[in-house]
């Protein structure tokens, strides 16, 4: 049970980062390799406000999410909009570079550096007994926050005008122009949303992995999560993350040492062999 919950918790973080990937990919057909770094930045923002400036924890978290969202929007506006329409590889290089630069800048920041930092959270170290299992508060908070965030996103994309507009732009950009949706502005908001979600993932992850400049490397796991879910499916991304997290922790328990890191990737290969479009691919393609 503990294993399952901790697997799910890690899976939630993978899922959240994958969600950010998929949002950006669907809207702009850009694969953002800096998603993990956005998460790192979010965690650092929260750490700076809560630990270095001693601001209240919740306020710090909220402001860190907002600030990371702004960073996301700024990346779209300043770095990606000018190269709109350039070959995919150019865009990918730009996002890779953003990731590297973000890590470099973070290690040079006073107070950040290359050390491992501790973000103290109010629920630190708490344990809850549930169904004869001892669960850590950190894991429970991760699972609950992710569930809440997913519900909110579900509602946002279903009912809110901006959410609908984001889906519309991702499905048919030309038609979006025809009805007066500001396509570039909407894309910037998608980046902002994606940055905010990454920050949530980073802050949730902080009590477990601590805050350091390489925490963004879990972003590498988010790509397989998105692939398993069927790149382009929002619920699929979260489900893919959960599956990977579970698979990882179960492999760590039952399989010999070393398989823990390999197992998720084996799973990706299997899924791609059996169902190349992913488990939750959107059913209808645009008719030509």
């Amino acid at each position: 049970m503990q294993i399952v919950i901790s697997g799910l918790a890690v899976g939630c973080v993978y899922g959240l980062i994958a969600l950010g990937f998929v949002l950006i990919y669907k809207a702009t057909e850009t694969v953002n390799f800096a998603q993990g770094e956005l998460m790192m930045i979010g965690a650092y923002f929260a750490y700076t406000m809560a630990e270095l400036w001693h601001w209240p924890f919740l306020l710090s978290v909220l402001l860190a999410i907002l600030a990371t969202a702004l960073v996301g929007a700024a990346i779209e506006r300043v770095l990606l909009r000018p190269i709109e329409g350039e070959p995919t590889i150019a865009v990918i290089m730009v996002t890779l570079a953003i990731g590297m630069i973000a890590r470099g800048v973070a290690s040079a920041m006073p107070g950040w550096g290359t050390d491992t930092h501790h973000l103290r959270v109010p629920y630190q170290g708490g344990l809850v007994d549930l169904f004869q299992a001892r669960l850590s508060m950190e894991h429970i908070v991760i699972v609950c926050s992710t569930a809440g965030l997913c519900l909110a996103l579900f509602y946002f994309f279903r009912a809110a005008k901006l959410g609908l507009a984001m889906r519309a732009v991702s499905q048919n950009q030309l038609a979006a122009y025809y009805i007066g949706i500001p396509v570039s502005g909407t894309n910037a908001r998608v980046w902002a949303l994606s940055g905010g979600i990454a920050a949530v993932a980073g802050i949730l992850m902080a009590p477990i992995t601590f805050v350091h400049i390489n925490m963004g490397s879990v972003g590498v796991m988010a790509i397989p999560a998105a692939v398993i879910g069927g790149f382009g499916s929002i619920p699929g991304a979260v489900a893919g993350g959960l599956i990977l997290g579970l698979c990882e922790s179960l492999a760590g328990l039952y399989l010999p040492e070393g398989f823990k890191d390999a197992a998720p990737h084996v799973l990706v290969l299997l899924v791609l062999m059996i169902k190349p479009s992913g488990l939750f691919a959107d059913q209808i393609r645009k008719k030509v």
């Binding site: 005008k161 609908l164 889906r167 519309a168 030309l174 009805i179 007066g180 949706i181 645009k286 008719k287």
Partner: peptide, 29 residues
């Protein structure tokens, strides 16, 4: 569009994965 020009393009420039109702709601974006 804000100046009052609406363009109903040829072919099927709709949003295929949104419902008919959602397509119409977006018309009033």
């Amino acid at each position: 569009v804000n100046a009052g020009v609406a363009h109903a393009p040829e072919g099927r420039e709709i949003f295929p994965l949104l419902t008919v109702h959602e397509n119409l709601r977006l018309g009033a974006y």
